[in-house]
């Protein structure tokens, strides 16, 4: 067990080192960041207010409103009238609409648009992880060492994903700073949730599919083609995971209508519930992982 752990740690460590030296991480990270920034720049200006009201603090005593002065653009806090409170939907009271708008924007970019990019990049790019060992003619050395198939495959997968995760964390920080400067304040919890609960697990699943499914490929070219075949599956999983998260965040506001029912209805019909759909998505991904490992072990036997 101790040997397996030290072998796993070594493979992950050296996978990271080699990925860093190939500059793949730098290029990928730069590409991710530039794309996110580009998308942000392309978004139409947000309208973070209902009329001139940007926040209704209904729970304060007395209730207050924050409104933007039409002439100067300054924010003014004053006591709210019942009429003003009623003009704002219940779900939007006690929330800064400016923050809500920025939050919606970053969440949309990170949890809705970005995973598509991750799916495409990861399934194609990481498919060659194990065929690369064959191309470097290093597999024979691995096979002659007391490294089990599970340790080898698992560590290669984790090594590839660790490299990706570190890149994504840097992109998260970089884009967070950029978004704070250009879009203004946003809810950090939602931002972190978008990365940690959507992008990172999704990237792990895509990496797993890609690395394992292409592990038997004899060449990098074949591995890339296997990656391309996996792409529709990765995008289907994206639809399930990402949309779920989106709807949860966006239910807070009325301005952006959650698209989840629409997409899921298109895919599974109206009867299926949101939760069931997510479970279904996870079942597909986990089941597929087992299928790939099983197929691989059969192939090796």
């Amino acid at each position: 067990m101790a040997l397996a752990l030290s072998q796993t740690a070594a493979i992950i460590r050296y996978e990271l080192l080699m990925a860093w030296r190939r500059r793949a991480l730098l290029v990928m990270g730069g590409f991710f960041l530039v794309t996110l920034i580009g998308f942000t720049a392309m978004q139409p200006p947000s309208q973070p207010a209902i009329g001139d009201i940007v926040e209704v603090n209904a729970s304060a005593n007395p209730p207050t409103i924050t409104r933007r002065d039409a002439a100067t653009g300054e924010l003014i806090v004053e006591e709210a009238t019942e009429e003003q409170i009623q003009s704002v939907p219940q779900a939007l009271r006690d929330i800064s609409l400016i923050t809500l708008s920025s939050t919606q924007m970053v969440v949309m970019l990170v949890a809705i648009i970005f995973p598509v990019l991750v799916a495409i990049t990861v399934v194609v790019f990481f498919a060659e992880t194990i065929p690369l060992d064959r191309q470097y003619r290093i597999r024979e050395l691995f096979n002659s060492a007391p490294v089990s198939s599970l340790v080898y495959l698992g560590s290669k997968l984790l090594g590839a994903w660790a490299a990706l995760a570190i890149t994504l964390l840097f992109v998260m920080i970089g884009f967070g700073i950029f978004a704070r400067i250009t879009l203004g304040a946003f809810d950090l919890t939602y931002y972190l949730q978008s990365w940690l609960l959507v992008v990172l697990p999704f990237s792990l699943t895509c990496t797993g599919w890609s690395v394992l499914a292409a592990s038997g490929a004899g060449s990098r070219r074949k591995a890339i083609l296997i990656g391309l075949v996996l792409l529709p599956g990765a995008l289907l999983l994206y639809t399930l995971i990402s949309v779920q998260f989106w709807s949860e965040v966006m239910l807070v506001g009325s301005r952006i209508t959650p698209q989840e029912p629409l997409t899921l209805t298109m895919l599974f019909g109206a009867a299926i519930s949101q939760t069931a759909a997510i479970q279904f998505g996870f079942l597909i991904s986990v089941g597929f992982l087992f299928l790939v490992v099983w197929a691989w072990s059969r192939m090796r036997a």
């Binding site: 990019l117 495409i120 990049t121 060659e128 890339i224």
Partner: peptide, 12 residues
């Protein structure tokens, strides 16, 4: 020098 980069560029 990597086909994967070319394929990615094409798709993206």
């Amino acid at each position: 020098r990597r086909s994967s980069a070319g394929v990615l560029a094409v798709i993206l």
